[in-house]
C-alpha cells in the first residue's frame, strides 16, 4: 500500500519537475537535486515507515481485540495476555527491521524513476507506473531474503 501511494507520489512529483525543467533549473542554480530532493524523501520515508508500522501493529491488535471481545465473546484480559505470550523477539525484530528496508526501497525507487522521466506528461505517467511495479516487486523479493536472514539470525531455520 505504501509502495503504491508513496513511490507513485514521488515518481510523479519529481517526474513533473523533470519535464518542466525544474530539475535542470535547480542544477543551474547551483544545487544538487539528489541532496535537495532525494535525501529528505529517503530519510523521511525510512523514519516514518518505522513509526507507521508501530501504529499499524497497534491498530491491528486493537482490531483483533474488538473482534475477539465483541464477535467471539472472548475475555478482554485473556486476549491481551494470549497476544503478549505469542509475541516473540523474532516477530518484533522482523516487524521493525523490514519497514526500514522497505521505506528505503520505496523512496529510492520512486525518486529514481521520477528523476529518470523522459518525454513530457506521457513520460510522467509511465515513470509513475514503473515506480509502483518496481517498488512492489522489489519489496516482495527483498522480503523473502530479509525474512530468511532474520530467521537464520534467530536460529529458527530448520
Amino acid at each position: 500500500m505504501v509502495a503504491g501511494r508513496n513511490a507513485s507520489g514521488m515518481a510523479s512529483e519529481l517526474g513533473s519537475m523533470k519535464v518542466t525543467e525544474q530539475i535542470d533549473a535547480m542544477r543551474a542554480l547551483g544545487t544538487d537535486p539528489t541532496k535537495k530532493l532525494v535525501t529528505p524523501r529517503v530519510v523521511s520515508t525510512v523514519v516514518m515507515m518505522f513509526f507507521l508500522t508501530i501504529i499499524s501493529d497497534l491498530v491491528g491488535l486493537t482490531g483483533g481485540w474488538i473482534c475477539a471481545t465483541l464477535l467471539l465473546g472472548l475475555d478482554s484480559s485473556q486476549y491481551w495476555s494470549q497476544a503478549y505470550q505469542n509475541l516473540v523477539n523474532e516477530d518484533v525484530t522482523m516487524g521493525l527491521v523490514k519497514p526500514l528496508i522497505f521505506g528505503f526501497i520505496i523512496a529510492t525507487v520512486g525518486c529514481y524513476y521520477g528523476l529518470s522521466t523522459k518525454g513530457g506528461t506521457q513520460g510522467v505517467g509511465r515513470a509513475t507506473t514503473q515506480a509502483v511495479v518496481a517498488a512492489s516487486v522489489l519489496i516482495l523479493v527483498v522480503d523473502f531474503f530479509v525474512t530468511r536472514l532474520i530467521m537464520a539470525w534467530f536460529g529458527s531455520l530448520v
Binding site: 513533473s16 525544474q22 533549473a25 535547480m26 542544477r27
Partner: peptide, 16 residues
C-alpha cells in the same frame, strides 16, 4: 561555476 551564470529557461522552470 553555475553560481556565476544565470539561466532563463524556455518555460520559466519556476518551482511550483
Amino acid at each position: 561555476l553555475r553560481r556565476k551564470v544565470g539561466m532563463v529557461f524556455q518555460e520559466s522552470a519556476l518551482f511550483d
